[in-house]
Design a protein around this nucleic acid. Structure first.
Length: 295
DNA sequence: ACTATTTGACCGTT
DNA sequence: AACGGTCAAATAGT
């Protein structure tokens, strides 16, 4: 599997390599900054993070993937024509036709296990659980739903902690996630909580479990989006995050399969983009590639 | 053949 | 009884 470098992947590799060089240069510059600029520490850290991200992305790209990630087979489209004769209820009015599969984005591989129309919600709620639930007994789950107020935002709620975070890249992501400097947090409480893991892009937030799946609530939204506390409610033991959805305002159906793809979509903040590299880990890698180069 | 996704059904909680 | 979360059979892609 080592030589799965498609032309697109090859291009991506070059891009990443280039990005890495840029990041290295940036870091070098920052190193030489005057003491006064030490407050740029965050920036330096960011530069370092960029390097790490690129390194991992490159490693993932060349090192080959690991196991099959969910959606690996359905990386792009999965015309789900489920015409069950018995009981299957067939397709509802909102026949779902998947276009992309993005079950990975925060270093963990999520597997969708359910979708539900929520009473007072315009959009269905999607239920994901850690793919390694069976392997490692990981109980981490998350719910993804389009924000009602702002369809351009995804509301992702995490439950439990990742017990599978013990050796795979996930671990790295957890560590790195804590260093993500560009997260926008709204609300003091949220910001505080964010430090344990919220200081990371939404798609990395799953690592935020502060030890034992305690509750945390943080938000992050698009740069343009003016914060409007809406989901600041603290709930049981979950972590709610709001991440920017694609500018295309994907439908609920799309959301079902690309809960996090949006974060890499068009409005691509260079900084955020770097963090996006995190999502390149293993399985997600291919998806991203196809999304960027084959569209 | 294997594995992930879909989606109706089932079950627990309120 | 209603709602929300999870299960599991069926389906589909590799």
């Amino acid at each position: 599997m080592a030589a799965l470098l498609t032309p697109a992947a090859s291009s991506l590799s070059k891009l990443m390599a280039q990005g890495r060089e840029s990041a290295a240069a940036l870091e070098a510059l920052l190193r030489g900054a005057t003491p006064q600029d030490q407050e740029h520490g965050e920036v330096r850290e960011l530069a370092a993070e960029i390097l790490r991200c690129c390194d991992r992305a490159l490693a993932a790209l060349h090192g080959g993937g690991r196991k099959r990630g969910p959606g690996d087979a359905a990386a792009q489209t999965r015309p789900s024509k489920r015409t069950r004769a018995s009981g299957g209820g067939g397709e509802t009015a909102a026949a779902k036709r998947v276009e992309k599969k993005w079950t990975v984005e925060d270093g963990f591989i999520w597997r969708k296990y359910g979708q539900k129309e929520i009473l007072h919600s315009k959009h269905p709620r999607l239920y994901f659980r850690c793919t390694y639930k069976d392997d490692s007994g990981c109980r981490a789950t998350r719910q993804v739903q389009l924000s009602e107020d702002d369809p351009s935002l995804y509301v992702i709620t995490y439950f439990g902690e990742h017990t599978c975070c013990h050796g795979d890249n996930a671990v790295l992501d957890c560590e790195d996630a804590k260093m993500q400097p560009f997260v926008i947090n709204f609300g003091s409480a949220a910001a505080a909580a964010a430090t344990s893991g919220g200081g990371s892009p939404p798609w990395l937030s799953s690592c935020s479990d502060d030890g034992d799946g305690q509750s945390e609530t943080s938000r992050s939204s698009q740069a343009a989006g003016s914060p409007e506390e809406e989901d600041m409610e603290e709930l049981g033991d979950k972590v709610t995050k709001i991440e920017p959805a694609s500018s295309d305002h994907p439908s609920a159906a799309e959301l079902s399969s690309s809960p996090d793809a949006s974060c890499c979509s068009p409005p691509w903040d260079p900084l955020a983009a770097c963090s996006d590299w995190d999502i390149f880990n293993e399985a997600s890698f291919d998806y991203v590639i196809s999304d960027y180069f084959e569209l």
